[in-house]
Amino acid sequence: MTTKKDKLIDLCLLAGKLMLMYGAETYRVEDTMKRMAVAGGMDNVNSFVTTTGIFLSGVLEDDDDIMQMIRIVDRFQDLSKVTEVNHISREFVAGRMSITDARQELKRVEKQPMNYPLWLIYIASAIGGGAFSYLIGDSLFDMIPASIGGLVSTLALVLFQHYLQAKFFSEYLAAFFGGVTALILVHSGFGTNIDQIIIGSLIPLVPGVPLTNSVRDLMAGDLISGLARGAEAALTSLSIAAGVATAVSLFL
């Protein structure tokens, strides 16, 4: 039998887990869970979130203390899910949604597919790579090979993350294939400015979410998560650099 206490703490943990998994900052997750628990009638609420795990403790109406944790393994970048969970938690805190409704909504968010289909993300990384390369290199024609390179590196990243499931190695391989594509295009005469083309093909791999979140976590005083995310961003950038360095030293 599930009591109100269990339902409430399940709801808070589910909201926190979704936010942390899809790329919210640590202090936002802590704040959201605490507000939801207090709005549900809990006292003595404490939440502690790191990049890889969530702890929540509290006491409901003179019952025993309750304390639960979950471990977060996967980290994706899907900011529209963070926005939706944020909205649901606001509605719950304002009292416009019951525990059961909020849980149903969160389950719906958990199950729903990505906001944009995968092919649109491929097209976006092609366009983003091409457009960004123009900002660096000033050559209109070289936008085309740069966007081909951006498309190849994102395709390779999604493919390797799906089949290999190795965090930094897949970024290394994606950067390697993006760099090889750019070099092949330049050597076959399709494109002139090699710097611009290589940068354009690698820019969709930039770890924007951990980079920004690291700064915000450090500023909010969450030193452990800030450093952890900073390490994630640094390792990702290093793997990208190593991948393109391999490609350049093999083929240039």
């Binding site: 900011l79 529209s80 944009y116 976006a124 924007g208």
Partner: peptide, 16 residues
Amino acid sequence: ICGIATVAFAIIFNIP
């Protein structure tokens, strides 16, 4: 072109 690039990156990060 910079506006286009930023919007493309917003799609990569799955922004509403």
